[in-house]
Simulated scan of single mutants.
Amino acid sequence: MMDRPPTHNFPHASDEFAVAQPPDGYDGPESAYTLAYADQPFLLRRELRSVRVQLELLKPELLLQDHGVSATLVLFGSARIPDAATAQARLDEALASGSDSAAIARARQGLEMSAYYEQARQLAAIATQAGSRWPNKLYVVTGGGPGIMEAGNRGAHESGGESIGLNIVLPHEQRPNPYITPQLCFQFHYFALRKMHFLMRSVALVCFPGGFGTLDELFEALTLMQTGKCTRRPILLFGESFWRKVLNFDHLVETGMINAEDLSLFHFVETAQQAWDWLINDYRLEELLSAPPAPTDV
């Protein structure tokens, strides 16, 4: 039996789960005798979707509360950006194998983009080292996969800190990268709940180059902040030349699709140190995290 305060008069669910073995004749797959909360086929029914959504909100929320996590630096970015060594090896292989010019050009582009991996790794290390000294400890959180996500968790790990990974089930396998703190590594089915958890504790968001997934995460944050549905936090876009080619922000203003002041929702940066200096000097992040932790809410 679990230890409980003397005023708790009912047994804990885990106590009854431990002893609720089905009797003979009721232990087959056709039996409905299994406790509802231990019955996986029942929990996976279409009608239980609302319950699964609630569980996917609650599990990370409660476990992060248990761990004392209340402030996060969110790193978004492509799963396809490799570290420099991997990118160089791909280029060397393409050149040695006599690949066509298009394949070699892609490999050269991969090597160029790998610089963002190192910047994400450096920023995560700086944030983890500095954030561990403040009363409201700062944790790096990523989407838990490879590429820029791996770089963020790796930088935190290499600096001796813990970090969070919010992974998601995809048609193609996406394994958690090996640098996430295991007790802070979560797997999601619903994109919406995953994005909510990115924002719930964020004190700043840093968006590196990426594709559809990164754009989805970026515009979710921008929309919620623009509409006042989420506390306004700094959004740093890494690599101005990349983002200006992908998104014509000025055209959105010129055509009246957004207001000119909406451009202040984000800020361009080029290096890890520049990003961190902006957060410390312009956003005054240290003062924010020196205050007592605030409760999360939805």
Rank of each mutant, 00 (worst) to 15 (best):
V203Y: 07
H172G: 00
F238P: 00
F212Y: 14
L237P: 01
Q183A: 11
E162N: 11
F242P: 06
V253L: 10
Y283R: 06
T255Q: 15
H267P: 04
T271D: 04
R194G: 06
P209W: 11
L170G: 13
L170N: 08
T181Y: 01
E220G: 06
E217D: 15
G165K: 00
D216Q: 06
C230Y: 12
P176A: 13
G228A: 11
N259L: 12
E270F: 09
E220L: 01
A204E: 02
K195H: 09
E286L: 03
F208Y: 15
L279S: 03
I235H: 07
P171S: 11
Q273V: 07
V253E: 11
L265A: 10
W243R: 14
E286V: 00
C230M: 13
R194W: 10
L236G: 03
F186V: 03
G161A: 02
L252M: 15
E270I: 11
L218G: 08
V203D: 05
F198Q: 01
F238D: 02
D282E: 15
L184K: 05
A221R: 09
E261Q: 14
S163H: 07
T181L: 03
E261R: 13
L265G: 03
I180H: 01
A192E: 01
A272N: 00
R284E: 15
Q174P: 02
Q273M: 06
G228S: 09
L166M: 08
K195F: 10
E217P: 04
N281Y: 04
G210V: 03
D250P: 08
L224P: 10
H251M: 14
F238Y: 14
H189I: 09
